[in-house]
Computed example of a mutant assay.
Amino acid sequence: MPMDIYLVYLAAVAVFFATPPDTSQLLIISNSVRHGLRRSVYTIAGDLTANSLQMTGAAFGLAAIIATSASAFIWIKWLGVAYLVWIGVQLILSKEKADHVTANTSGQSFRLFRQGFVTSMANPFAVVFFGALFPQFIDPTMPVLPQLFILGITYLVVDGAILLLWGWLGVRAATALKRFSFGLVNKVCGALMIGAAALLASKDFQPQR
C-alpha cells in the first residue's frame, strides 16, 4: 500500500473518531468510573474483538448480505439495546459498595469483556461500514489481503487508543463523583448505559462503528 494512501486513511479514521462519545465509548466511561481503567481494559478487548470479527465479515462479503436483508439483522440491534437498558436499570437501582465493585475476579473480567463484545456486535451495520470504508483505500494492483490486514490493524489501534482516552477521562470523573457517594456513581453509570442504548437504537445504515 502506498504511504500517501495509508496516511489519507489514517487521517480519515482520526476524523471519524473526532466526535462526541458513541455507544462503546459511553460503555467504557461507565465501566472506568465504576471499576477503574485497568479493569475496563477487558471491555475494550471485547469491543475490539467484535470489531475484528466485523472486519472479517466485511472482507468475506457479509456487508452485501446485510445491506440487502437489513430486516433480518434488526433484531440483533434491539437485543443489544435491551441488554444495555437492563444493565443501566440494574446500576441505577443497585446499592453495591465500592469494595465489592472493584473486587478482582475472573467472573467480573468476563462480564466486562462480554459487555464490550455484545455492545459492539449489536451494531451489525458496522460490517457495512467496514465494507464501504476499506475498498476506498485498496490498491487493486497489489495483494489485497495484506492491505486489508494493515487497514484493519490501524483501525483497531486508533479505536483502542480512543477508548483508553475516554476510559482515562472516566477515571478522572470518578474521583469527583465518589466524593459525594458511591450510590451517585452507580446512578451516573446507569444513566450512561441507558444513553448508550439510546445511541444504539438510533443507528441505521449510516456509517457507524
Rank of each mutant, 00 (worst) to 15 (best):
P146Y: 02
A126C: 12
G61M: 04
G107M: 15
D99Q: 03
A197N: 12
F137R: 03
L184I: 15
G46S: 11
I76E: 06
Q136P: 02
A126T: 15
M3I: 15
G195W: 06
K97P: 05
I162D: 01
F130Q: 03
L151S: 03
W168G: 06
T23M: 13
A98G: 04
R172D: 08
S40Y: 02
S32G: 14
A126Q: 07
A11S: 09
A198M: 10
Y9T: 07
A197I: 08
T49L: 14
A161V: 15
N186G: 08
P143N: 02
A59D: 01
A67K: 00
P143S: 00
F134Y: 13
F17Q: 13
T105C: 07
F113L: 11
L192W: 08
F205C: 02
G116W: 02
S40W: 09
F205T: 07
Q136D: 11
R34F: 09
V8W: 03
F182I: 08
I150N: 00
P124A: 00
T102M: 13
A59T: 05
A82H: 02
L184C: 11
L163D: 09
L62V: 08
I65L: 08
Q108H: 13
Y9M: 05
G160L: 10
F180V: 15
S120M: 13
W168C: 10
I194E: 07
F16P: 05
D99G: 01
I92C: 15
S120L: 08
L164Q: 07
A132K: 12
G183Y: 10
T49D: 07
S120G: 08
T102P: 04
R172N: 12
K187F: 08
A197K: 06
G195K: 04
F137K: 09
